[in-house]
Computed example of a mutant assay.
Amino acid sequence: MARIICKCGEILSNTLAPNDIQLRVYTDKEWDDIINMGQIDSLDIPEPKIDVWRCPKCERLYFFEEDNKATRIYKLEE
């Protein structure tokens, strides 16, 4: 569980579960590997390799990798 302050000033946190901040995003290959695992329980589905957060105020996307630091930040164009 973590929290950051978005560049727009909004506080983003994943402490609540479920929440509207943290997105579950899998690459097509990751999802194919999960599907090909056969009969699995939903609790056995691995976490995505990249954690994606979306700001509800400005809709920026933050991409986090292994070191828990935002490695890429994308701002919505108009």
Score class of each variant (00 low, 15 high):
23 L>D: 01
76 L>D: 00
4 I>N: 00
6 C>N: 07
35 I>W: 04
16 L>A: 11
28 D>L: 06
35 I>L: 14
41 D>V: 01
69 K>A: 10
68 N>Q: 02
42 S>A: 06
4 I>C: 00
52 V>D: 07
51 D>M: 13
49 K>R: 12
23 L>N: 08
19 N>T: 11
48 P>Y: 02
60 R>C: 13
68 N>K: 01
59 E>S: 08
34 I>H: 05
62 Y>K: 00
43 L>F: 07
22 Q>M: 12
77 E>T: 05
7 K>C: 04
61 L>F: 14
44 D>A: 15
47 E>S: 13
9 G>I: 07
77 E>C: 03
57 K>Q: 13
66 E>S: 13
40 I>K: 05
9 G>T: 02
51 D>L: 15
14 N>V: 03
35 I>A: 07
29 K>C: 01
1 M>T: 13
65 E>S: 15
46 P>E: 10
35 I>Q: 10
21 I>Y: 11
35 I>S: 03
36 N>F: 05
66 E>Y: 10
9 G>H: 06
57 K>Y: 10
52 V>G: 08
42 S>F: 09
57 K>C: 09
17 A>C: 05
64 F>T: 01
4 I>W: 01
57 K>S: 13
10 E>R: 07
12 L>W: 05
13 S>M: 07
26 Y>K: 07
24 R>C: 09
42 S>Y: 09
49 K>G: 15
60 R>L: 04
12 L>Y: 06
65 E>C: 07
10 E>I: 02
32 D>S: 11
16 L>I: 06
13 S>A: 08
27 T>R: 04
49 K>L: 10
66 E>P: 03
31 W>R: 02
69 K>H: 02
38 G>C: 11
21 I>W: 04
57 K>P: 00
41 D>W: 09
18 P>W: 07
55 C>H: 14
7 K>L: 13
68 N>R: 00
64 F>V: 08
31 W>S: 02
21 I>Q: 01
78 E>S: 03
69 K>P: 01
11 I>G: 12
18 P>T: 09
7 K>N: 08
3 R>V: 03
29 K>V: 10
